[in-house]
Amino acid sequence: MNNENRENREIILAGFGGQGILFAGKMLAYFGLLGGREVSWLPSYGPEMRGGTANCSVCISDKPIGSPLVTEPNILIVMNNPSYDKFINAVAPDGLAIVDSSLVGARSDRKDINCVYVPATQMADENGLRGMANIILVGMLIKETGIASAEIIRKALEKIIPAAKKHLVESNMKAIELGMNS
């Protein structure tokens, strides 16, 4: 896919601290930024980020963004049970939920949203990409929505991965491709 799809995105990413929720959100925000769009990224903050649940809101739009806090996401990426329980019913009708099925046992019976189950944590482990389940889920998001072109994906990775950890660009690319091809 070469041209990114320019729909308005209101995204929630949620899981445990340490799963790279905020990083994945940042990546999505950069997709928007590098696509010349308006973006916002808002983390949950405070004691809950220490070992507890972590989530962040990402908005991508062609218009100025009003509320950076997403309460009815049209895209949800979820990586643990508490977050699944908290957010699955908040997803807007016709929205998309991408669930790490290695970690979330439940299956939604909502018929008005598109639920995609990806055993991302297991896939990461099997492919020598431990800790990159979040990025595999981003890959799935790209596949489902066309949110970013190949060119923007690479640019975004180069931008958010510090120069000292440059070697991680390729493994992140690999994780994204894994998600896109699953």
């Binding site: 925000a29 308006e38 973006v39 990224w41 808002l42 963004i65 806090l69």
Partner: peptide, 10 residues
């Protein structure tokens, strides 16, 4: 406020 402080935007 906390929203403006914590959020990222271009």
């Amino acid at each position: 406020d906390g929203l403006l402080g914590q959020m990222m935007e271009p």
